[in-house]
Write a protein that binds this DNA or RNA. Structure first.
Lengths: 212, 212
DNA sequence: GTCTATATTTGGATAGAC
DNA sequence: GTCTATCCAAATATAGAC
């Protein structure tokens, strides 16, 4: 299908492609809220008119759908990678947390938007359903990790999964790519999640990632 | 029989007071979003008309202001209580986490709304400013706890505070008062935050022991 | 305290010219 | 691909009667 040239490229003036439109829209959605952002605002940010904007996308909801898909796809790709890893559930859970932080950092604006979706339209409900699917994956991983004795068994795995990813997801509230490598942050999150805030005690070894 | 009648009572029909209006508004704001909720929706939920609603409150933004104040006041009351406690910073930090979970549970809908505020109006900016103030308090407590050796010192205290309360705040996404005592949840959160997910140990290891 | 209008603005979306 | 002009629906808020 994708023969050749019609690939739209970023040029000096207008000539926008869907990606550029999406990027501008998502930025505005996150800054001012989805509802508070008008199609006029999106068009203005791109330097075009509303009519021209509608020439590129079918409507406001489609912009939202594309954005949350991009976020959710990233998380599921991370989940698929750890699923195929041949190691303990505990290590896979750690790896999933780590990967999720990286996905969140790489697709920050898309994930931010995803996490603010409440489920009032079909598009939003679909996004929520996929989030629940991801949650179920994490919960199952936590359950297995408990079964193998890798993590504490005195907490409901669903609760643990929620609190764990509650911490991860809260990154969208303050993480900014310009300061700090995401890998370092991912390590911090994994350490805090698995070892807690308590003082490092030299008699224990955490077996964490070699990546400094 | 109250001393005087000006205290508006919950009655069969209308006769609403500001608290009832606020409760209805906040529920709708959380369910459908602040922007997506019209003053008509609020009025309809109360069984009155828009005009009557405007007789009770000065406008939509005032409803938001009252709601977020109620949330933020709760958090600062908790902070004031731990500040006066005569104990280590580490214990006070734990207590603040614990109290915050309880405040969050008690004023769930108000806190939920607070955490969704983005700062696009004066009211929202004021709410954000108070949240930052609270964050600073937590960060300072974390710094003191590190200084006294109560919590690990290899993590920036601001980062620790954010991740810690990221976990706490994520409760609004799934906690429902009808299932489970908030005190039990608060204990779980404190345990996870301070001791981590790792197996309660005596002899720690990496967790790849054979099952059980 | 509650109602029935209604003023005014803004938003999503389309038609059709260039 | 971009524009001007416009339609139509919905939202905040007010006026003024009962």
């Amino acid at each position: 299908m994708d023969t050749a040239r019609p690939v739209p490229r970023r040029r000096g003036r207008p000539g926008h492609d869907v990606d550029a439109v999406l990027a501008a829209a998502v930025r505005l959605f996150n800054t001012h809220g989805y509802d508070a952002t008008s199609m006029f605002d999106v068009a203005e940010a791109l330097g075009i008119t509303k009519s021209t904007l509608y020439h590129h996308v079918s409507g406001k909801e489609q912009l939202l759908a594309m954005a949350v898909d991009r976020a959710v796809d990233g998380l599921f790709e991370a989940a698929a990678r750890v699923r195929d890893a041949e190691t303990t559930a505990t290590v896979r859970l750690k790896e999933l947390v780590r990967s999720s932080v990286l996905v969140l950092a790489q697709r920050l604006e898309f994930v931010t938007l995803l996490l603010r979706v409440r489920g009032n339209t079909e598009v939003e409900q679909h996004a929520l359903a996929r989030r629940r699917e991801f949650d179920a994956l994490v919960t199952e991983l936590a359950r297995q990790a408990q079964a193998e004795g890798g993590i504490r068994a005195d907490v409901d795995p669903a609760t643990a999964a929620r609190l764990l990813f509650g911490m991860v997801n809260s990154l969208v509230e303050w993480y900014r790519p310009e300061r700090g490598r995401p890998e370092a942050l991912a390590d911090t999150v994994v350490q805090l999640a698995f070892d807690g805030l308590r003082t490092i005690d030299t008699t224990t070894d955490r077996g964490d990632q070699p990546e400094q």
